[in-house]
Design a protein around this nucleic acid. Sequence first.
DNA 1: CGCCTTAAAGTCATGTCAACCCTTACCCCG
DNA 2: CGGGGTAAGGGTTGACATGACTTTAAGGCG
Lengths: 240, 240
Amino acid sequence: MAAQLEQPTDISTDVALAVSTVIFALRIDPKTGLTTLWIPLVKRIREPHEGQWALPGGPLHCEESLADSAARTLKRSTGLTPKYLEQLYAFGAVDRSPGGSRVVSVVYWALVQSDEAERAVSDDNVEWHVADDLPTLAFDHNTIVEYALWRLRNKMEYSRVAHAFLGETFTLAQLREVYEAVLRKPVDPANFRRQMLASRAIVDTGRRLTGTSHRPPRLYRYNSDFTMADQGPLTPTRSH
Amino acid sequence: MAAQLEQPTDISTDVALAVSTVIFALRIDPKTGLTTLWIPLVKRIREPHEGQWALPGGPLHCEESLADSAARTLKRSTGLTPKYLEQLYAFGAVDRSPGGSRVVSVVYWALVQSDEAERAVSDDNVEWHVADDLPTLAFDHNTIVEYALWRLRNKMEYSRVAHAFLGETFTLAQLREVYEAVLRKPVDPANFRRQMLASRAIVDTGRRLTGTSHRPPRLYRYNSDFTMADQGPLTPTRSH
DNA sequence: CGCCTTAAAGTCATGTCAACCCTTACCCCG
DNA sequence: CGGGGTAAGGGTTGACATGACTTTAAGGCG
């Protein structure tokens, strides 16, 4: 027999089976000398895991897509509006939520800009934490964070994820700082410049950042007609 | 307020919201001169999309994990037992299933060996199709296939996915054939050998494949203490 | 035994990339 | 107004990866 694929008739929710979206939001703080990754956590105000910290999350509504749900939930619980949102993974172990209820969580991964982060959290139940040094979280959220960080660090080089952390325009030094925070190691400025320009991911605006106590760096912006897709492992850079 | 994260109380399935798993299974056929990728499709026997071809799939049961559900569903609808199973993506657009029902599908991506494939399909409603040339499928399954193939081809080089297609031991020529089928282009045997051996992903068994009409090739097997994780962009190959 | 086929190993040119040099530009401060 | 500090931004080198090609090994078969 063929599959009874996606037919609501025979899946009449015999037991509670819920779908929720969970958001792993990232922010970079350029203030502290060592740039580090920060993520917002929410304190649970009811069972299960009352009082423990958890990633922002909430139930999926019927009239919204997964991505919409993630954006809405993040906004509601932390006030943040992500600039970048991407699906990470669906977690669906049977026992990941205690108490016999079954929850499948689709985890999204969001990036927010530093300035945005300032005006967001105003609640005692929301707090920023350093991504690499978290307390024990509710549910399987520690596992989720671990996986998210691993993916982030592996994906860095062939995506423009880093750009989402910054504003419309930025200097190469700022962009490089983001890379260094994510990769947790210094990056050579000269080589970094070459790579970024060669990849055509960014474009010179012609303007410069003034007001510094040194030579004013150029301001760049994202290349609008540049998608991650043509950034495969084989970049045919036949530029001449 | 903090998120009402994953609490079954306030998500009491107001409207039908179901979770299903969908499997994109792949097989390589070494018979035909040009090795090609084949995937099993299932003909739908009821609405919606009755009579159309679709990827194998079915509702998630409450007492099974997502991966278990995918494996079980594939087995039930096609008879196949995958050697490799990995989550691909969760599809959750509001209108992806017609008729007002809301279905979130977690798509898994499975690889099966050629010999296994033989004894599987025995049903008129199950058929193997060439992955790059499919009919119009039910739901958004064409989109799913497109995405799956894109991911497969991009992931090839830094994962051992290809190995799953083959048996316990294999020759380099066999392994290369798999790569060529996936990448759709010829691969230089000599360079391929060098890469594979340098990556330490495979190990020489010491034995050779006899019975050929030419020089007997060495038999290799997977390197058990080799995970994709240490294959990151920074491979510290300080071997001396 | 010679011929065919394919495996397996070696050679060489080219490209890529990190590490490190350097010069240049600009602001600040005296 | 001129010197010093700082970072931009470009150049060079050497290690290493990669691609194209050549050479040798090993077996089957007529």
